[in-house]
Structure formats: C-alpha cells, structure tokens
C-alpha cells in the first residue's frame, strides 16, 4: 500500500492507495487519513479485501486505540464493506455516514462502533482542534452522498467525483490534465446520474478554497487542475445510460 502525505500542518492528511497486493478483479481505491495529535479519522476506509493492508498501513501513523473516527461518503462496498472488521478491531470509534444509509450500512455489522448519521444538509466532524466540513454531494453518484472539506488544509475529499480507474503504478497526482480527461469521461458520464445535482455541487464547491481535490479512485488534482476539473465537469453531460 502506497502512502503519500498530502498535508502537514497542525494535523496531517495521508493518502493510501495503489495497493499492489489487491486482487486484480476489484476496483482500486484511495483511502485518506486525517491525523491529529491523539485522534485519527479514516475517510472511505475501503472494502473488506483491503482491511489488512489498510490497517497495517495506518499503523505507521497511529496506534489502533487512536483510530477514533470513520467516514463513509456513501454505501458502496468499495467504500465501506470493511466496516464489520473495523467494528471488531476498534473499541471506541464512531462512523460518520449518511443518515439515509444507516439501516443498509448496518448489514456490514456495526455493533461496537457508534453510527453518527449525517443529515441531508451535511455537518461537521471535529477532531480535537480540527473542524472538517461535511459537504452534501447527493446523487454524485449515490442518493445519499457526502464529501469532506478541510478549510485549514484546503483539501476536498470528493468521493467518486474526479475519479478515474487506473493501474497500480499510476502517479498519485494528475500531471497532464488534458491527457487525464479521457480516463475520467466515461466514469462521470455513466456513474453520475443527474446534471442538476452536478450543477448544484459545482456551485457549492466553487465557493471553497481548494488546493487539493482528492477522489476515491485514481489521481488527485492540485492547484490549477482543481479549477480545470470543475470547468470540465460543468460542461459534461452525465446520466448517459437512459
């Protein structure tokens, strides 16, 4: 599992991904960790297949008892099917996840972890002195979907928005936006169902000061590529399967 520190300040952001040991027939995912002095938040911690390498990777940054919070942007298995395992490993943790998916996510088993339902209009996650904003991203692609924005680090964890499916050797940041576009086009057109939802999200996100846009698959965008992505996504017609 490759680990890349993408922010270092009063707290840290670490990106985990490009797992070489992952079975070839499951989709590659990026996991993110926000680390404060005594706490640790896992953003979209991944599928059950990924639990062991992910836990092993996190142990380079935090002890088990300081993994206090999990966040699931939506209900998909590549996002959170490891929940049942985290549930048995962590004795004092919270899962922040869409309220509308609570009854569904509990199928993965959630006995010791406290489910903190996120209402449709979003909210915040407080990790010691760090306050993260939960940004609504409904229908992008899931009907109950959220992203996480850190105003201090200027990072937006954008779930499936900005995603691309790539090989385990690909770089973690987009280095040539024009070349990267084709890797994202079908993904966004096919997985994202609503042009209206897309417009609302772009309007909301354009008001945020973002240095890094960090999707759950593929490469992250930084600097001017963030605006390039938003402009490109704005012009894209989605929901092409109907």
């Amino acid at each position: 599992m490759k680990m890349t520190k993408i922010y270092e300040g009063s707290h840290q952001w670490i990106m985990f991904g490009r797992d070489e040991g992952k079975p070839g027939n499951i989709v590659d995912t990026n996991q993110y960790v926000v680390r404060t002095a005594n706490r640790c938040l896992l953003l979209d911690p991944g599928g059950a297949e990924l639990f062991a390498p992910m836990m092993a990777a996190v142990l380079h940054h935090a002890p088990v008892d300081q993994i206090t919070d999990l966040f699931a942007s939506h209900q998909d298995p590549d996002v959170i099917s490891s929940l049942g395992l985290w549930d048995q490993a962590l004795t004092n943790a919270k899962l922040h996840a869409p309220a509308i998916w609570e009854g569904f996510l509990r199928h993965y088993s959630c006995e010791s972890i406290e489910y903190v339902p996120i209402p449709d209009n979003g909210g915040t996650i407080k990790l010691e002195s760090v306050e993260l904003q939960i940004i609504p991203a409904h229908y992008l692609h899931s009907s109950g979907n959220f992203h996480v924005y850190d105003p201090q680090a200027k990072i937006l964890m954008s779930g499936d928005v900005g995603a691309a499916i790539e090989g385990p050797d690909s770089p973690v940041f987009v280095d040539n936006f024009a070349a990267h576009v084709e890797k994202m086009r079908y993904w966004h057109q096919r997985w994202m169902p609503s042009n209206q939802a897309k417009r609302v999200w772009i309007e909301r996100v354009r008001n945020l000061d973002i240095d890094i846009l960090a999707p759950q698959h593929g490469r992250m965008f930084k600097g001017d590529d963030v605006k390039r992505f938003l402009d490109w996504f704005d012009a894209l017609q989605v929901g092409i399967a109907v």
Partner: peptide, 20 residues
C-alpha cells in the same frame, strides 16, 4: 484478517498496538 494485518504491519511504529 487481524493476524494478517499484524504480520503486514511488522516494522510499523505502532505495530504492537494490533496485538490487543
């Protein structure tokens, strides 16, 4: 899975915390 995680974490700063 926990045993596998502990094995994979060998050498990590907080590897021992997996024992519990």
């Amino acid at each position: 899975k926990f045993e596998l995680a502990a094995k994979m974490a060998e050498g990590a700063v907080y590897a021992k915390s997996m024992q519990e």
